[in-house]
Amino acid sequence: MNNSDNQGPLWEVFTQKKPGMAFKHSGSIHAYDKNLAIEAARDLFTRRNEGTGLWVVKSENIIAVQPKDAESFFDPADDKIYRHPTFFEVPDGVKHM
């Protein structure tokens, strides 16, 4: 990145569609500082009433699981099916459970 002229760091944008809903990743933008970032995010990602809440976070601050670690992170949950309600048998006729 050229130090004196560039598009600024990358930021990730999260929008909340309605109060109470989870924030969802919308995409990324470039911005030089946090004020410009939140405004660019607003102008790009909420033009069609997509948001009642907005987060931006510098992409470099996001910690992600590396693909090489994915097996050890996620596969151990595969055989813990007793964590899901469908695992259990409930006698026919029992309601509201």
Binding site: Q7, I29, H30, A31, L36, E39, A40, D43, L44
Partner: peptide
Amino acid sequence: PYLEEDIS
């Protein structure tokens, strides 16, 4: 001056 600002 850059694309984000164009949109704004």
